[in-house]
Write a protein that binds this DNA or RNA. Structure first.
Lengths: 411, 411
DNA sequence: AACATTTTTTCGACTGTCGAGAAAATTAAT
DNA sequence: ATTAATTTTCTCGACAGTCGAAAAAATGTT
């Protein structure tokens, strides 16, 4: 059912516009705000004074005048009006960061994960304690942290912060809401990490090109497991994203056993353990070890580059699974540029031919041109940045609804 | 870039709300409008009088009074304020319909397509003449027909009404805008037919359940070729849809030659010609005839049901391609109910096991429950209705923008 | 100190929605 | 027939929001 429009919503939307301009442009003057939002100067005035009174915005007195005339006063977010905790879970470590409302990193530490740990309770208790520590170190009141946003590999439930399936813990689920509610009242978010990598890359492009014409972008993360995120530019200019379990899309019904219990998933062939399996001709019904040192795959790559047939074949087969999978993706969602991240980019030379061949084998691609393929080595940063951006714009959305709310009174 | 909100947009949105209420509820009184839209009675008054003045709305005098009190006056769309031509192209015929703004069918005729006609110019000229005829029979001015909306099988360009690839004309493209511009000034739309089948089924469900909780629905059309439409319920309650070329998604890279020139497309195995190919063990590099009488497939089905192994195998293989393809779809877009239409539903018993097996083989489906599978034999109606609905709400959207426009002055 | 220039705020006009009461149109009762 | 009751629709004044233009503010220049 469509919603009716009221003058109240109208104001909300324009408040949101101001907030998003601030988010994108950093520190902005009244006039710039007016130009960017195309709101009249008068409206900008009323909204900014309102937000200032609510403690969300700060006027930055500006000293360096660049010419004659009244100097501009710049607005910026009040950094202390809210904080978010950003947790990034990787296979090797967990990274805890505290970020303020203006987006600046206030604190960070990392904890190595003990190798081969598969007990979920041990893991989650340590995670809880580490978040507790992050709060204590900050000397903030727990209520001042409005969001805890966690990224992980694996399949995430929609609507609630629950991990449904992950390479390490497999079918043992984990609800972060239940875990963290006792220690702080924040909103808990859980998101697939590659989704935020995609979001981040898409936002970079949109900022550079002023809206990325292509409307969609896929990000493929190559590593122990295979991740995929898809970012879409909506009609209103917002970029939304999602992360299907691409690694567990069926490639070959007669393929090898995957960690997920099915046969022939893309990951079972193109994940690091899949490559290792093919290289060492491990039996199809055996899943290789959960933790494979990167060094091991590098060795296979060296052998492949030196002409070892079986090693070459392992990478080629991986590329084939990825390429055909991407081709299927493009068939269903239309052609879009593809960004590749993760340690697996190191071995792209060995997979390139078969990946591109798979993509090429798509009706729309054959009819038009090959989609652009790009590489991004800073996966960790991308995920972190994507998470922060998404978190803070979420906060912005909450703020615009809470007009005159008493919630934002930290200063 | 987000759009600023103005009082003008505000009014537009509420005009749209009134129009969509009218579209859904048919003939509605002032009070009902107010309740349904949750706009105040005063606002409904101003908007309805405005729309009435513009000739878009009619007051329906006379109401069978159901008790004491002032009788309600009902509003309805002015049927004559606009007309649309609906063209439905199937492999056997082309159906031409004229529909008024209130959605009632004013005229309809069908023209059989000569069998085995593959010349695109002959076809398009006949189409043009037939539309010309539809206009002349109506005795309307060409300007009164605001939209010509065509449905077809095949791959349709986005943004312009161009057929990019179709089973019959293959790579010979066809731009309906160029074709029809000389004879009328209407907006020309071209859409894949299964997309509207999906749209129509989704709208039925939404109406019945008051918004279909599942948010997505896939419709599979089984016939000479394979079509797929996906309908999504957006946050605002609108249902949007698209139609990827699912039939040409790669099933098996070593599979048989498809009409599209690739090998192993789903359609090359599960389309009628694919089933025939397997049943008669036609060579993988040969594409069977373009026009296969339904009778032929029915014969294979009879043999299969009587236990003929090769015939059984043909349907089983088709089901496998469809099921695994649907599984891949669900992996990428999440679990959703599946509706099946087209003549191929007649043979569902022969494919059911392998279709369901393929769907079942999906991480999210294994973790939850099997998506609902339903059947719809009235494909033609679904496509027509979906097209009409989509056309008319499009018109509504144009109307709300053209406030005080002089465009709507037919009465 | 007066003037020029640029930025920001303020003011009045305009558009839109809403609530409440007035007006309209009908049935039921006298 | 007239009046009362009832229900629906319209109208009017209040309020919220945006906009353009003019006023005010803050600084540099002469």
């Amino acid at each position: 059912m469509l919603m009716k429009a009221s003058t109240e919503n109208l104001r909300k939307q324009n408040r949101g516009l101001i907030l998003s301009a601030l988010r994108r442009l950093g520190s902005v003057s009244h006039t710039e705000l007016s130009q960017w939002t195309s709101l009249s100067s008068a409206t900008v005035s009323t909204i900014t004074t309102e937000l200032e009174k609510e403690g969300i915005l700060l006027r930055e007195e500006q000293a360096p005048s660049a010419g004659r005339g009244r100097p501009r006063v710049k607005f910026r977010q009040n950094p202390n009006c809210a904080f978010v905790a950003i947790v990034r879970i990787t296979s090797e470590m967990v990274q805890y960061s505290l970020v303020d409302y203006a987006g600046t990193l206030k604190d960070r530490f990392e904890e190595k994960r003990p190798p081969a740990e598969t007990d979920i309770d041990t893991f989650s208790n340590r995670l809880k304690n580490d978040i507790q520590r992050l709060i204590e170190r900050s000397e903030l009141q727990p209520e001042q942290i409005l969001t805890v946003s966690i990224t992980t590999k694996g399949l995430v439930a929609s609507g609630k912060p629950e991990l449904l399936w992950s390479p390490v813990f497999e079918d043992k689920t984990m609800n972060f809401e239940d875990l963290l509610r006792p220690i702080l009242p924040a909103q808990i978010r859980l998101t697939n990490d590659t989704q935020f990598a995609a979001q981040s890359i898409a936002e970079q492009r949109a900022a550079k090109l002023g809206g990325f014409s292509n409307r969609k972008l896929a990000t493929l993360s190559l590593s122990h497991s295979i991740g995929l995120g898809i970012a879409t530019e909506e009609a209103n200019g917002k970029i939304s994203s999602f992360a299907p379990p691409f690694g567990h899309m069926m490639h070959d019904p007669n393929g090898p056993l995957c960690r997920c219990g099915a046969h022939g998933c893309i990951e079972s062939i193109a994940g690091f353990y899949g490559i290792l399996r093919t290289a060492f001709e491990v039996d199809d019904d055996v899943v290789p070890a959960k933790f494979i040192p990167l060094k091991e795959i590098e060795n296979i790559a060296v052998r492949a580059r030196n002409g070892d047939h079986q090693s070459e074949y392992a990478f080629r087969k991986a590329g084939e699974a990825l390429g055909i999978g991407l081709g299927r993706l493009l068939t269903l969602l239309g052609p879009m540029p593809i960004a590749i991240t993760g340690h697996g980019t190191l071995f792209y030379d060995l997979m390139q031919t078969s990946i591109l061949e798979g993509i090429q084998n798509t009706l729309q691609v054959r009819r038009n041109k090959m989609p652009e393929v790009s590489f991004h080595t800073d996966e960790g940063h991308l995920i972190f940045n994507g998470n922060v951006q998404s978190c803070l714009s979420d906060l912005d959305s909450n703020i615009i609804s809470e007009q005159n709310g008493t919630k934002w009174k930290f200063n």
